[in-house]
Amino acid sequence: MSPAARQSRAPAVLYEKRGAVAEIVLNRPESLNAYDTAMRDGLYEALTAVRDDPEVRAVVLFGNGRAFSTGGDLREFGSAPSPVAARAIRWQRDVWGTLWNLSQPVLAGVHGAVVGGGFEMMLLCDHCTAASDARFSLPETGLGMIPGVAGTQTLPRLIGSGRALDAVLRGTSIDARRARELGLVQKVVAPAQLRRRVHRLAEDLAQRRPALLASLKRLVRDASDLPIDVGLAAERRAARSL
């Protein structure tokens, strides 16, 4: 088998359980982990496996190769079905809703290019560690598009309206240090340390009671959607029941 043929057979997403920690790795290094239908299907499979597996208590997410992910694979865009069909598929296999709604904490470890949908994927996680070489941007408007993985919604809620508009409209590139200042990533580490550091954090979290983590995650996530008295009541109810 030629190297090219072997490469084309490699799964676009790798999934492995190590004890209570599930590791999901984007695995299209030859395309800088651009998101195509194979990756969509692989991610959907991995995320639903996590969702349905009570043994999994924490999830880590990485990308193989030089980049975490450069977002949607533009080479596929010409062959895409009609917008009507694309919209239907988007909600039938709701990869991003599945990621967002996981009850386990999801820890991203990102490096290199973290661009477009790749950046937005990270923003749907619960904690992000960046290698010092990570660079973040949303180039969509320069291509006649807008972000399509919830970035227009997650980003302003994280960093405020002005900064989010700057990132979304201009596609401004953000380096790892700036991303930490903005609160987009919580830690910056040397590239060689990235996986070990994220795994260590996941193992720590996997020691905690899953129901506790699930409640905390839901309460914090829903805080921006709820009137505060409703959020406070939900917090009290959850605290009493745990």
Partner: peptide
């Protein structure tokens, strides 16, 4: 893209 920048603003 002028439609893209309008819609990006609207989405945010």
């Amino acid at each position: 893209g002028p439609l893209a920048t309008r819609y990006a603003k609207e989405a945010v």
